[in-house]
Design a protein around this nucleic acid. Structure first.
Lengths: 121, 121
DNA sequence: TTCACTGCAAAACGTTTGCAAACAG
DNA sequence: CTGTTTGCAAACGTTTTGCAGTGAA
C-alpha cells in the first residue's frame, strides 16, 4: 500500500461522483504533483482486480471508477451523461431463470433522463 | 448506396457471428482489396445511426456489429468471448417499474459459460 | 536487501478526421 | 452537374507497456 494507492483510493472514497481515470489523475496531481498517469492506471487496475473498486464502461467516453459498495447497476442520463447507482437485487436470479443456465454475472446500464435534466426541459 | 456499403451489409447479413470492424474489414478486403478501414467505419457508423445494424460494446476489446433484427440482449461467454443473442421482452417494463421513472432503453450483457465451453471443462 | 511500485516516454489500440480524387444519383 | 463517399494518412483519446530508478517492508 503505497502513498499513491492510498491517495487514489481516498479520492474515490470521498467522491460523490463516478470518476474517469483522467479525473482521478487530475485530483491526485493536486495533492501529489509528481504522480504519473501510468501509476493511476496501474492502481485503478490493481484495485479493480482486487475488487476494491469498480470499473464502469461508459459508451462513447472513458471508463469510470467508483469505490465498490454493494453490487448495483447504473443509470446513465442521456442528456448530461451523469451516472447514478440503482440496486436491483432480484435481477440476477431473474436473468438466470430466463437464460436457463447458470450465469456468472451481467453488466447493465439503463438509459434515462435524470431528475435535474428533466426539470430543465 | 455504394458498392462498399452493400458489401459491408452483405457481410454482416451472411455472418452467423458478431463481427468486429476489423473482421468486417478483413472480409471486405477479400472481395474488394482497395477498401479502406475508414470506409468500413464510416459505413458501420452510418448504418448504425440509420438503425440497420447494431453496435455491441464488448468489455476489454473492440466493439462488434450485427445485422439488427428484433431488439435483444447479449450473452458473452467468459471463456471464449463469443457473443450470443437472447430475447428478454419483459425486461424493459420490469426495469421501468423498478427505476420509477421512464427509461429510454438499456444495455445488458450477461456473462456465462457457453454450451461448447461447458462441454470442454 | 529485496521486490513491488513509481515516473517517464513511447507504443498500442480502436476509432475518427481532413482532404483531394472518384463516384452515384 | 452536385453532393456524397471513397481511400489514404495522419491524428485522436484512452489505456498499456518497457525500463531504469525509488521506496516500502
Amino acid at each position: 500500500m503505497t502513498k499513491q494507492r492510498e491517495l487514489i483510493l481516498q479520492i474515490l472514497t470521498h467522491s460523490d461522483r463516478h470518476l474517469t481515470a483522467d479525473e482521478v489523475f487530475f485530483l491526485a496531481k493536486l495533492q501529489m504533483p509528481s504522480i504519473a498517469m501510468a501509476t493511476v492506471y496501474n492502481n485503478l487496475n490493481a484495485m479493480t482486480d482486487a475488487g476494491f473498486i469498480n470499473r464502469v464502461h461508459v459508451d462513447g467516453s472513458a471508463d469510470c471508477f467508483e469505490k465498490g459498495s454493494d453490487p448495483h447497476d447504473h443509470l446513465r442520463c442521456t442528456s448530461c451523461g451523469k451516472l447514478a447507482n440503482v440496486s436491483l437485487p432480484w435481477l440476477k436470479d431473474r436473468l438466470r431463470q430466463a437464460v436457463g443456465t447458470d450465469i456468472s454475472g451481467y453488466d447493465l446500464t439503463i438509459h434515462y433522463i435524470c431528475p435535474e435534466c428533466r426539470k430543465k426541459i
